[in-house]
Design a protein around this nucleic acid. Structure first.
Length: 427
RNA sequence: GUGGCCGUAGCUCAACAGGUAGAGCACCGGAUUGUGACUCCGGAGGUAGCGGGUUCAAGACCCGUCGGCCACCCCA
């Protein structure tokens, strides 16, 4: 193997998988547009300060996972680790926020992490963001959009919606103090990671995977008790709306998110089928972020889904999506035959643009060309040899006769080829 | 950053108390001069991730290193 290989965690997506990706991308585009969301295309690189200010200085993403470098002017740039920050920046900069905005984007994100199943250093997210609405009907809309998408993708049965409200910044500050006070009395019973988080990011202890830590938390203060009235009212209204729409959810009072900008509603769509990285889509409200980045105060909510994780689910549980098959493979032996085949094939592509035609290339015997035709999976071979050239005809041979049926072949005049294919290979 | 498992042909994998590599699939060619698939025959393809050590001898053992997978952490 060559010494030059792809960078760790940055994977090639091969033709054998792109049919699945395209299905996913098509389906997402159709669903978001059916809710009236407009696509926004954003740079992959932004000023480092944007991410530090939005995601939070002390989050893991900013502290140790960003691809950050100085450009030739010495300015610090970063490959985007997520999409919301750039989207908010663009919405402010382009003056989109004087009205309600429903936006979506898709593309690669970068985080310097150890790769594992469902996690890579270059990965792809599709995000949906709604600006300008503070009420929980918008929260519900976003969740319904997701639910519809899972339905369309055939993944609804593997998804569970987890919901929580983390309230206002003030509420979290008060809760955080109470939680730290409680846990400090039990510090020696905490697992090592949680001890570390106790002072850096104590809320993250709530979703620790350590069973003993979880048991400990049962006796601790509950975030729910610290929520202000508005947060509580909005959360129960959201629950009502979801029930009315028939969306199942579980309230997970220990669900917190890793990025600093969230408030009030947070949610995650999780699956059991992906091993340790079970979160397929996650998001929440971020009412303070626009102002924090210099825009006029604008409530907002958004979520992002991991494309690789969705592709894994699709590959795993639906019947394999076959790549678009080839209709015809052109076999031409001899120089004159090749000329005629090439010209005729081009004409065919004008006449029947939906037809997928592969022209044999690279020479070879009649037999080897036929083998290639078969291997290509084509429905039919279009055959040009000496006889056809002389008679101004082409032979159309079916390559996919079902069992018992004999392979059929007909030789038709060149000018009849279009009609022959139109009926034989009708889609 | 930490831990476990792994690294032999394009792919999936073998072998052997340590004696210098093999199968299936894929690929290429052929089986009476223009017809694929099935079958048969043949061919090409590996300095065993890399470097060092032990040994008369190492793909097999030891050390290092790089890479992969999974998990922790973190998150989509």
């Amino acid at each position: 193997m060559s010494e030059i290989t792809a960078i760790r965690g940055m994977n090639d997506i091969l033709p054998s998988d792109t049919a699945c990706w395209q299905f996913l991308e098509r389906t997402i585009a159709a669903v978001v547009s059916s809710y009236g969301y407009g696509e926004i295309r954003l740079p992959v690189v932004e000023k480092t300060a944007l991410f530090k200010r939005s995601i939070g200085e002390v989050t893991d993403i900013v502290e140790k996972e960003m691809y950050t470098f100085d450009d030739r002017n010495g300015d610090s740039m970063t490959l985007r680790p997520e999409g919301t920050a750039g989207c908010v920046r663009a919405a402010i900069q382009q003056g989109l926020l004087n009205t309600i905005q429903r936006l979506w984007y898709t593309g690669p994100m970068f985080r310097y992490e150890r790769p594992q199943k469902g996690r890579q250093r270059q990965f792809h997210q599709t995000g949906v963001e709604a600006f300008g609405v503070a009420t929980p009907d918008m929260d519900a809309e976003l969740i319904l959009l997701c639910a519809r998408l899972w339905q369309q993708l055939g993944l609804a049965d593997s998804m569970e919606l987890q919901l929580n409200s983390i309230g206002s910044a003030d509420a979290r500050r008060a809760y955080r103090a109470a939680l730290v006070e409680f846990l400090e009395t039990k510090v020696d019973m905490l697992d090592e990671d949680s001890q570390r988080r106790l002072h850096s990011n104590p809320l993250r202890i709530l979703d620790s995977k350590n069973a003993q830590t979880q048991a400990l938390l049962d006796d601790g203060p509950s975030l729910e008790d610290f929520l202000d009235e508005e947060a509580q009212a909005d959360f129960s209204r959201l629950c009502e709306l979801l029930q009315a729409a028939g969306v199942k959810y579980v309230v997970n009072r220990r669900l917190v998110r890793g990025l600093d900008y969230y408030n009030k509603t947070v949610f995650e769509w999780v699956t059991q089928k992906l091993g340790a990285q079970g979160t397929v889509c996650a998001g929440g409200r971020y009412d303070g972020l626009v102002a924090q980045l210099g825009g006029k105060a604008t409530p907002a909510i958004g979520c992002a889904m991991g494309m690789e994780r969705l592709v894994l689910l699709l590959l795993e549980q639906s019947e394999p999506l076959t790549a678009s098959h080839i209709d015809a493979y052109v076999v031409a032996v001899g120089e004159e035959a090749q000329c005629q085949a090439l010209a005729t094939t081009e004409k065919l592509r004008d006449q029947l643009p939906q037809l997928r035609i592969v022209q044999h290339a690279g020479g070879g015997s009649f037999k080897s060309q036929m083998k290639k035709a078969d291997k290509s999976g084509a429905q039919a071979a279009l055959i040009w040899g000496e006889d056809e050239v002389a008679a101004q005809t082409v032979t159309v041979k079916s390559l996919r006769a079902s069992d018992g049926e004999r392979a059929t072949q007909v030789t038709v005049a060149l000018q009849d080829l279009e009609n022959t294919l139109r009926t034989a290979l009708a889609h």
